[in-house]
Computed example of a mutant assay.
Amino acid sequence: MKLLIVEDNIDLLESMKKILSDEFEVDSATDGEEGLFLAFQNIYDAIILDVMLPGMDGFEILKKLRADRIMTPVLFVTAKDALEDRVKGLEIGGDDYLVKPFQAPELIARIRALLRRSGSLTIEHTIRYRGIELFGKEQEIKVDGTPVRLTIKQYELLEYLIQNHGKILTREQIYDRIWGFDSDTTVAIVEVYIHHLRKKLEAYGYHKDIQNVRGVGYILKEFKE
């Protein structure tokens, strides 16, 4: 799979390339014109696009791509306090944003999420836990054979719990994996989503399997009276 990174901060650019090159083929550009040229000349599975670039900013690049019907998923990279940039980027056709500074697991998670939604990245097998089945490609869930509707974040949370069932996950681990270092949320959001996820599973009796580990976090394992 092939990615394009357009970023003028050389140190950050090299860091992202190092993080992603084990899993993806990566092209890069350090200014807007070169980035746009590469995006037009090649087929990419996703583009990581800085907002502030010399020559042509990320917004202008995205507008030109969408005008030419190039619908490659775009992950904007924005400054921590640039709320207006994040909103504008999504409104003009961006698919997601990542706030600087960020860590490697957050970058990889965001890219994988984009690729899953676009259909470029598929999970080879269904993830199962007891009577719960998660179908990775479609991001669908069935509980005891019945389809259950979840939001994207609820799905990602359940997926993470199932992938680590039987293991204690701290609130910080869950937050970093699902929300990263987005300044608009705090680690308290984990408890809120755990509550909503339990409500979705309550009718089937699996809500009790998402167990609190006092003062630490949560563990997914079969609840026994």
Rank of each mutant, 00 (worst) to 15 (best):
M1R: 01
L3G: 06
L4H: 02
N9V: 15
E14Y: 01
M16I: 07
K18A: 14
I19K: 00
L20E: 07
D27Q: 05
E34V: 15
L36I: 13
D45Y: 04
I48R: 02
P54N: 09
F59Q: 04
L62V: 14
L65W: 04
R66L: 11
A67R: 06
I70A: 03
T72N: 06
K80W: 03
A82I: 14
L83C: 07
L83I: 15
E84I: 15
K88A: 13
G93M: 07
G93W: 02
Y97F: 14
V99L: 07
E106D: 05
L115S: 04
R117P: 07
G119S: 10
H125Q: 10
Y129E: 08
R130H: 04
G131N: 14
E133F: 03
E133V: 08
E133T: 08
Q139A: 13
K142A: 07
P147W: 01
T151S: 15
T151Q: 06
I152V: 15
K153Y: 03
Y155C: 10
Y155H: 03
E156V: 13
E159A: 12
G166D: 09
G166E: 07
I168V: 15
R171W: 01
I174G: 03
I178H: 04
W179E: 10
T185W: 04
V187C: 00
I189H: 01
V192Q: 01
L197T: 11
R198E: 09
A203Q: 06
A203S: 13
Y204S: 13
G205K: 03
K208R: 11
Q211S: 00
N212G: 03
V213M: 12
V213I: 15
I219E: 06
L220H: 00
F223T: 04
